[in-house]
Computed example of a mutant assay.
Amino acid sequence: MATETEPAMQADALTLRQRLPSNLFMHLGILFSIFAMSSPLILALIMSTQTTSEVYQVTNLGIGSQGLANYDIVLTDYNFATYLWNSFVMSMIIVVGKVGLSLLAALALVYYELPFERGVFMFILLTLLLPVPVRIVPLFQLMADLGWTNTMLALTGPYIASATAVFLFRQHFMSIPSSLVETAKLDGVGPLKFLFGVLIPMSKGMIAGVCVITYIYSWNQFLWPLVAVTDKSSQVVQVGIRYIQGSAQAGLTQWGLIMAGAVIALLPPLVVLIALHRPLLRTFAIQQK
């Protein structure tokens, strides 16, 4: 009897093996990687619904008793809506200013005959070695001398110029066929008209990608706003989270409120990233089918 069932069992095992995808382990590895990367966000969402005592219970991994109350407390009692608005305004000003200035700089570097053009471009790239945290002391002194402290000018001014954006736009402009430039010259098209009528329409993907990168980078600024702005009503969202952390209750950090603020602060850049993820991938030359 056993000898009769053995071929049937082997046939069933062969059929099961045929049904399994050939890249099963690869899919399992991808699912595990997704879970591992998203676990901090999942944990933050859970903690944002818990009370302080529930957070400190390590084994408590369920939805807390606070529900959405922590979010309401953060938005009302801690003035988080003002911080969100300040971060939004700061990020939009930086995006518009940085992209506009970088487009003009790339236009000059590619389509104008400048003396020491390569040297100028190398000098622009060398500024990458001096980010804002390195220049924070002289920058703060400059803002104080100009009377810009506690203003939006202090938050946005140091971030308007960008060597990275100039480099990306320059390389993209150099890939545009020179026949278009010659045709524009023959038609008497001026530099600005050529920029807005030809270059920008042909660079929509690159511009969108740079805008996404710049927006997320600006939204996550913490150190410079903390130094340049002392008025709480003019602060940004990342510093606002630090204010929540500083308000302890019975000697315990209110992690539920902190996580609620962190989740709220995550939403705007997440929406921008989801909406413009395809141009961002094209900016880094990642092809999508």
Rank of each mutant, 00 (worst) to 15 (best):
V236L: 04
T3Y: 01
L28Q: 07
N220E: 01
L155W: 03
Q221I: 00
G147S: 08
S175V: 04
L114K: 05
V263P: 08
K232Y: 08
L192P: 04
Y243H: 10
V198E: 11
N86P: 06
L14I: 06
D145W: 12
M206S: 02
M26S: 14
P7S: 03
P115S: 02
T149D: 07
D72R: 13
A36F: 11
Y112S: 11
L192T: 05
M1L: 12
F169N: 09
S48R: 06
P177Q: 08
P131E: 12
K232H: 10
P225A: 04
T76V: 12
A105C: 14
M206F: 09
G256H: 06
S218H: 01
N86D: 03
I136T: 10
L24H: 04
V263W: 02
I42M: 13
T5P: 01
E113W: 03
S87I: 02
I124D: 00
V198M: 12
S247K: 11
A248G: 00
L28I: 13
Q171Y: 08
T59I: 10
G147A: 05
P225W: 03
Y83P: 04
L130A: 12
K98T: 12
L84W: 00
L14K: 15
L192R: 02
L267N: 11
T52V: 05
N70T: 03
F116N: 12
A105M: 04
L130Y: 15
S65M: 05
T127D: 08
F173M: 00
L180C: 04
G29V: 09
D145H: 13
V166H: 10
I124M: 11
G256E: 05
M206P: 03
F169C: 11
S179Q: 14
V272Y: 09
A248C: 01
L45N: 02
I264W: 07
V189S: 11
A165T: 12
S234M: 11
